[in-house]
Amino acid sequence: MNTRKLLVAIIFLSSTQLAFASSSIDNLTQKNQQKNIEITQKYAASNNKSVPEIVDYKYGMPIDVKKLIHATKEIKTCGNYKKIMSFEDSQGDLHAVRYTVLGSCRQSEG
């Protein structure tokens, strides 16, 4: 009986850690996205260009990057998360693309 209680306690504590880590990554991703939007808006205003809408990357989507405006920071995590890259293409138009990357963590580095 004690083993069962211990197992339940371990599962409960593990699930709360996982939920906290997930919400923490979501918060960082949201902050990074907001920073990207602000930087892109400032760049667009100072260069008399329209602010781009963030588009989710789809496999095979052509990307024409002439000038990188901003890319969100890497997040140390053992899972996937979203990044955004804002850039100017060869025609001078601004774009913002959101894509998924695999985070790096100590377990996957070694």
Rank of each mutant, 00 (worst) to 15 (best):
M1K: 10
M1E: 06
M1Q: 06
N2Q: 12
T3S: 04
T3C: 03
R4N: 14
R4M: 08
K5V: 10
K5I: 11
L6I: 09
L6H: 08
L7Q: 12
L7Y: 04
V8W: 06
V8C: 11
A9I: 07
A9R: 11
A9W: 11
I10Q: 08
I10N: 09
F12A: 13
L13G: 14
S15C: 13
T16W: 06
Q17V: 14
L18Y: 10
L18I: 13
A19H: 12
A21C: 09
S22R: 06
S22K: 08
S24R: 05
I25D: 09
I25F: 01
I25P: 01
N27D: 12
N27P: 00
N27K: 04
L28E: 15
L28Y: 05
T29W: 00
T29R: 03
K31F: 07
N32K: 01
Q33V: 03
Q34W: 00
K35T: 11
K35W: 01
N36A: 15
N36R: 00
N36H: 01
I37Q: 09
E38R: 05
E38K: 04
E38Q: 04
E38N: 08
I39A: 01
T40M: 01
Q41C: 00
Y43E: 04
Y43W: 06
A44P: 06
A44C: 08
A45R: 01
S46Q: 14
S46P: 00
N47F: 04
N48R: 11
K49I: 05
K49V: 02
K49C: 03
K49F: 05
K49Q: 08
S50Q: 12
P52A: 06
P52H: 14
P52Q: 12
E53M: 07
E53V: 13
I54R: 04
I54P: 09
I54Y: 02
V55D: 07
Y57D: 13
Y57E: 10
K58F: 12
G60I: 04
G60S: 10
M61I: 07
P62K: 15
I63T: 12
I63D: 15
I63N: 11
D64H: 06
K66I: 01
K66P: 00
K67L: 13
I69P: 10
H70A: 03
H70K: 03
H70L: 02
A71C: 09
T72S: 15
K73M: 06
K76C: 04
T77H: 14
G79R: 14
G79P: 03
Y81R: 07
Y81E: 07
K83R: 15
I84V: 15
I84E: 07
M85D: 05
E88R: 08
E88V: 13
D89P: 10
D89N: 15
D89V: 07
Q91H: 12
G92N: 08
D93C: 01
L94S: 08
A96H: 02
A96Y: 04
V97W: 02
V97D: 00
R98Y: 00
R98D: 03
Y99N: 05
Y99Q: 09
Y99L: 01
L102Y: 07
G103E: 07
G103L: 10
G103M: 09
S104H: 10
C105T: 02
C105N: 03
R106M: 06
Q107R: 13
Q107H: 13
Q107T: 05
S108P: 00
S108H: 05
S108W: 04
E109A: 13
G110S: 11
